[in-house]
Amino acid sequence: MFFVSLKRIARYGYQSFLRDKGSSMALLFIMVLTLSGATTLFLVRGATSFLVLALESRVDVSAYFLKETPEQNILDVQTQLLQLPEIRDVKYVSQEDALKKFTEANQNDPVILSSLQEVGRNPLLASLNIRTWEQGDYAKVVDALQRGDSASIIEKIDYQDRRPTIEKIGALTTGIQTIGFLVVLLFGIAVVLVAFNTTRLAIYHARKEIEVMRLVGASNAFIRGPFFMQGAMIGVIASIVTTLLFMVPVFLISGFVERLLPGFNLAGYFLSNIFLILLLQLVLGIGLGVLSAAIAMRRYLEV
């Protein structure tokens, strides 16, 4: 009985959706706009998270050792550092490795290569590249190296503090997300208002029908159900339309985004999260559709 009624309510909702095309399309349009805003936010969040993560992974401290320092002493410092809980990893780069990397990096620059040949010896220093788990720990590590026993064999410590950059990106991300959220919220309110008005008009137009339904013994669920169903149906269609609408531009601008953010494939990110995106859109779309219908019915439909 329950499922039979549910099926019939769904059918009535579908009929109302088809019958009231003008209002349905207006609501569908504004809901697609809202869901597009939400989807854009999701993609921007993915890109900025990738950027922050990439920057964070690049932060490190390099300690360069005096030229005559025996390799064993450097390895001892490495062992000591690895015992600290803040340390993620410590990589030893010998003078030879440093030269090799330098040569490889400048193989297309004959001036630098010829200068290196003129020097006649390896001018580069052995070093330890240190990474910590937390950004805030780098300053502590630098301090420990400068104050500890190893200070006497260290030529220089190169610490590129990218924290200000990361903080700036963080602030920018928060700003974008806040503005985006406000835009989505505004669209969301517009959706509720349009859907509310659509349902209100539908109830107004159908008031005689509703009275007849009551008189032939239709229950509240039978009268109200189709309005809910219509709202939910528009939410589902809006979700599918929005996802399909995003596919083409996402693929078109993916290459451009990858040039800005090397390693970040927007199309790949979109496709790998497509079910999550669709789920979020469905929850938002159905939620908004049903909520607005509920508000309209609460005010205008006394059954």
């Binding site: 009985m1 039979v4 009624s5 019939r8 339904m213 032939v216 013994g217 239709a218 229950s219 039978f222």
Partner: peptide, 9 residues
Amino acid sequence: YVMEVMGAE
């Protein structure tokens, strides 16, 4: 419709 609201098959 009347029979539908009554849950008839």
